[in-house]
Design a binder for these strands. Structure first.
Lengths: 216, 216, 216, 216
DNA sequence: AATGAATGAGATTTCATTCAT
DNA sequence: AATGAATGAAATCTCATTCAT
């Protein structure tokens, strides 16, 4: 069996096991077995547990970012682009729950040696969203009312977080765990909720309709 | 030294170590040492690593929820209540970064035996927010336009996720890791961004100003 | 069982196993078993295989050097001092064949991380011998004929090597291995052979009776 | 590439790696890579790590013994023969430091399966020297004073050991390790030191000028 | 109330070695 | 003549956990 194929199998297995168990709890034995190969072969091709995990994270993150990017038609109007990006995000995370779990749940531990890399990848996602928002704001501005960069960054972080949370909501595993009932939301629903939030927020902000605490 | 005091010391130490290293990587040796007690004593008081971790999560989650709840004056107007809740959330997470790291970063692993409990605690937080939103919506509705429960739940999830993300943004550790520059946002800023988002979104939804994809 | 006693047992076992198998071949399992303790305890007390080996080498080297040093009566005449030193050397190596094997056979591999330390310890032995020779030469000089330092160092190296070789000769294990027959030499014999060599060599050198190649 | 050439390349590589790392630490991967061949080929030609090591030791030992033997002109006078043998020994070990390291440092481990063979090869070297000394003694005896065989064997062992030690002294690697300073001795110097020692020792012994401990 | 001493079980990783081609 | 692919076995080391005091 050619090396490339084997490597992919191993990554697939590793993503699944890491998503299920977490980095430390996952054992190389289990990964190797699931990949249908022997442990030494896993080491031969992927060097160490750490590198294997890194490779998984990188692959999944790149796939997610690529999915979002390619869904965004550069010629479309601003709102359409944001909408498509969101739908692609929810579609991809729903289609690849293990990869998503890896990125969202497992890869955040500070103190692990790959934390830095993971943080950078998440930042990439935020950057993509920041671009989307900035263009949306620019094109959609009814009047000359540029949002400060800092505010846009905040919005992007908030949106990414909201999207992550909604994606998690849609994940049946977390449903069971939390004891929630009722069907999880569809991608359309999740994207819709978020789109409305973003659209309304952007609109208000751009038009100066801010909420401010009443003087006490 | 009385048992209560010792126990608190142990939990403090455990939260710090768990936050820094994660559940699996943290070692009971380190925790015991940091707590200034011997390992057998830790076991005598807290039974096992798992129970110790659970106790940490429970304590920190309850503290966070209590902080948010107590900041919400039941007699205040709807927007004020949401605003105060958000500020309390950001204030608390900023004041207790280890506890927050525990809840946000470490405690998400599916597959660990305490995952269930952790998910339930997060659900409590979502429930608090859901209540806030529901009441805000009810009171703030300019016209009779009840939002469906399902949509409110979605909003709550989105808001909690956005808040988490903004709280993470404000955490200097993740800043360094992601290579971001510029000062992290203050609690006021974070709360403001989120409040605007929520307020605008709620307002639009309640008034039927929804964004919908153009027919293609 | 108190820590000190256990530690000594472990070192004893380690010296035996390392001497028998060499550093790499020896297994911590075997050492722990021979020491009558569990492996984790060995690690708790001695940290790592490398440190364990270092500790063995240090202990044995110090014991050997101490044995030689304490046998040398500072008030005795020069030849007597050398003689006593040699006898002590052969007596000690014969009495502690494992320790000797460790120093002589196992601890020389360049490339191992402890090679440096071992080389330094051997140098100590050479230094002791150099002192002995230097004083012998000074006191025993029939006429004013100081040997150059460099020559003395050479002699010391040669003597130490010769002693090592004779000590190895006396070791029954190497006898079997080499297929030699006949009883191995006693300490007295070995010391005598070496003493004569050293004494004659020194005498000749000091009196200028050197061997030089005939002009060809 | 013909088999013979390849085999030599492999042995060259193996000697280098074994000398650098020791038998156990050396890896077949490294040897194969350095030899520029694939691992299965190494196994095809040399069967196993053990046989490979044996082959290396045999080759190097035979080369050393041959060098010494061929330097000894059977017709020359006794002292001249010893002198030439010694010079050849130091010249060869200096010219082939890896081979020498293999014989002197790596190949002494009792407990490895080739220990027996290695010991026999060293014994051959001792035998060569024993012959040299025996003939020297016979020819050089000023009076009828045959040295007992046992004493000659002792001398031979001592001389070989001394030579080994001096050769080691001359090896720059051990110099660095021991922290010694000053230029290492040349072959001439080493051979001279040893020749004087041997010559004087032999002379004294044959003439009955022995050192004996004073009655106490 | 508190601990020094001790361990069973399991983790990652390495390596000599062999097929199938 | 030569090799890419693959592995069984064993190494070092760690850790949560428990006695005996």
């Amino acid at each position: 069996m050619p090396r490339e194929v084997r490597t992919r199998q191993m990554l697939d297995a590793a993503v699944e096991v890491f998503a299920r168990c977490g980095y430390r709890t996952a054992s190389m034995d289990e990964i190797a077995e699931l990949a249908g190969a022997s442990k030494p072969l896993v080491y031969l091709y992927l060097n160490s547990k750490e590198e294997l995990f890194s490779a998984c994270v990188r692959r999944e993150a790149e796939a997610l970012i690529a999915a979002v990017r390619s869904a965004v038609d550069p010629g479309a109007p601003a709102d359409r682009r944001l909408w498509n990006g969101l739908r692609a995000f929810f579609a991809h995370t729903a289609a690849h729950p293990d990869g998503w779990a890896l990125l969202h749940c497992q890869a955040r531990t500070y103190g692990e040696p790959f934390a830095l890399e993971v943080a950078r990848l998440r930042q990439q996602l935020v950057d993509v969203v920041t671009d989307l928002i900035a263009r949306t704001a620019r094109e959609g501005a009814e009047q000359e009312c540029a949002l400060p960069e800092r505010e846009i960054a905040g919005l992007a972080h908030a949106l990414v977080g909201a999207a992550e949370s909604l994606a998690g909501w849609a994940d049946s595993r977390s449903c069971e765990a939390a004891g929630r009932t009722g069907a999880p939301p569809s991608e359309q629903e999740a994207a819709g909720t978020l789109m409305n939030l973003a659209w309304a927020g952007l609109g208000n902000l751009m038009n100066g309709r801010r909420w401010a605490p009443a003087r006490s």
